[in-house]
Design a protein around this nucleic acid. Structure first.
Length: 271
DNA sequence: AAAAGCCCCTGGATGC
DNA sequence: TGCATCCAGGGGCTTT
């Protein structure tokens, strides 16, 4: 489910409530992407200072060390005073004085990794190569254009790679390219400056709107406090192959790029 | 250095 | 109804 907006909405839904909590116990299944990286028992007694986000990672700051949480493809977090009994897909649980944080993830591409600090090797491995935060001031249009200039790969795949700009997943990559009128297969280095500017704006725009709407998704997305449903951002192209473009009526096309589906309008995105 | 493939895993939809 | 196949919102790792 989660691209940047869903991760950010998840963060906002429990960051305030968990801040200041003291960890009572941590339970970790062996079945997520990586092992926790420390003994769960040694986290007991530490307190939760804050929850930040970097790309699609949530960083749970403790008074010593931090947890890196990733939702993978199918993960979601719950945080509440009381949660229903754990099910087969609940792989991580952290009981605190203010509630229990639980990661539910059927496909188990998600992860919870402990690191002593953001500079520790376990954290650097995951965060070290991440690109600019699209909703922050560091997402500078000059740096964006310059970074694209250095790349020959298709613009869609450069966006997905996350080393230029983070948080743009498979849905929003297609949506942003549509908004900017750019063909997903175009080599990133061939984007003119005006088109880079347009894409830069489109990325910020589509992500900010999705966050404002509470995390857009095609299927049900629910944040850590259980809110879900009513928000739904209408996709212009994603998963709309064969349907008429909402702007010009041309049939939306799909293709595969790096084993992921891409959607675009052949008329609105000519090159 | 950058690009392209591979793979991790389960579940739902579709087709025979 | 049963079974096979394909596809899914990610990204680290290995190989070119």
């Amino acid at each position: 489910m989660p691209e940047l907006p869903e991760v950010e909405v998840t963060r906002l839904s429990f960051a305030f409530d968990i801040a200041g909590a003291i960890i009572i116990s941590v339970r970790m299944g062996k079945s997520l992407r990586w092992p926790l990286g420390c003994c769960p028992a040694q986290l007991a007694g530490r307190s939760v200072l804050a929850v930040r986000r970097r790309g699609k990672y949530l960083l749970v700051d403790l008074d010593h060390g931090l947890l890196l949480v990733h939702l993978g493809m199918s993960g979601s977090l719950s945080f509440a005073r009381r949660l229903p009994p754990a099910g087969a897909h609940d792989h991580f649980e952290m009981v605190t004085t203010q509630g229990t944080l639980r990661l539910t993830d059927p496909r188990r591409f998600g992860a919870v990794v402990y690191a002593d600090s953001e500079d520790a090797p376990q954290a650097r491995k995951l965060l070290g190569k991440l690109g600019m935060e699209p909703l922050s001031d560091v997402f500078d249009v000059d740096r964006f254009h310059a970074a694209l200039k250095r790349r020959k790969a298709a613009i869609k795949q450069v966006l997905l790679a996350g080393d230029v700009v983070v948080g743009v997943g498979n849905i929003y990559a297609s949506e942003a390219l549509f908004m900017a009128g750019i063909r997903p297969t175009l080599s990133a280095g061939r984007l003119s400056r005006p088109r880079s500017v347009k894409l830069h704006a489109a990325i910020g725009d589509v992500l900010a709107r999705a966050v404002a709407k509470g995390g857009s998704t095609l299927r049900n997305f629910s944040s850590a406090n259980g809110d879900s449903g009513h928000f739904q951002l209408e996709a212009m192209v994603y998963a709309r192959q064969g349907q008429p473009c909402r702007v010009c009526g041309t049939s939306i096309k799909t293709l595969r790029q790096g084993q992921r589906s891409t959607f675009y309008c052949p008329h609105c995105q000519k090159a």
